[in-house]
């Protein structure tokens, strides 16, 4: 009895995992490219990403642009290197140090990344729409030493806002 072709299909076939040469693995193209950039803190070009991920240059550039917009990576033109180089915007300290919380229409993802001097907290603002899903609006990085200070400063500004409101209410009465 011959082998049923269904028997020959493996989990690796379903996922399109590599058996020779680089192709996107179980992580998906976006995650794969992000991990390639993270593994190269000295910077990579789109061409290097394209050949390392086994995808076209246009495709690699499009995903890198997306990652730039999400501030997962940053890029710059280095004198002497003709192409733009892409750098990781920090590596997660631990997978559990990344979480999202929804506040009405705003979603904030807070994550802790390795930094040059101290770990850095990234706060990413996301918006959710039914037809487009979650989209990154922007993000900031704060050195961990400055987190408490920034929180106190934010509270200070909010107190000023309350004072202004109170003054305005008194003026109206």
């Amino acid at each position: 009895m011959g082998v049923d072709p269904l028997d020959e299909i493996s989990v690796a076939d379903i996922l399109g995992e590599k058996d020779s040469g680089p192709q996107p693995d179980a992580r998906g193209v976006r995650s794969l490219i992000l991990s390639i950039v993270r593994q190269n803190p000295d910077g990579v070009t789109a061409q290097m990403v394209s050949s390392s991920a086994g995808i076209s240059l246009t495709w690699a550039k499009q995903v890198l642009d997306d990652l730039l917009h999400q501030r997962e990576v940053y890029s710059r033109v280095v004198p002497g290197v003709r192409a733009r180089l892409y750098y990781p915007n920090g590596k997660l300290v631990h997978k559990f140090l990344q979480d999202s919380k929804e506040f009405g229409d705003q979603i904030f993802r807070v994550s802790v990344h390795e930094g040059r001097r101290t770990p850095r907290v990234q706060i990413q603002e996301r918006k959710f729409s039914l037809l487009e899903g979650e989209k990154v609006e922007g993000s900031i990085f704060i050195d961990i030493d400055n987190v408490e200070g920034l929180l106190s400063f934010t509270k200070e500004v909010l107190e000023r806002l309350n004072q202004i409101k109170t003054t305005q209410e008194l003026e109206h009465t």
Binding site: L15, K18, P24
Partner: peptide, 22 residues
């Protein structure tokens, strides 16, 4: 359909099944 879906595309090396999972 499933047999064809698990074959790698000759250009991208990615099978349809992978796109369906994503």
């Amino acid at each position: 359909f499933w047999k064809i879906a698990t074959r790698k595309d000759p250009e991208t090396h990615i099978p349809l099944s992978r796109y369906l999972i994503e």
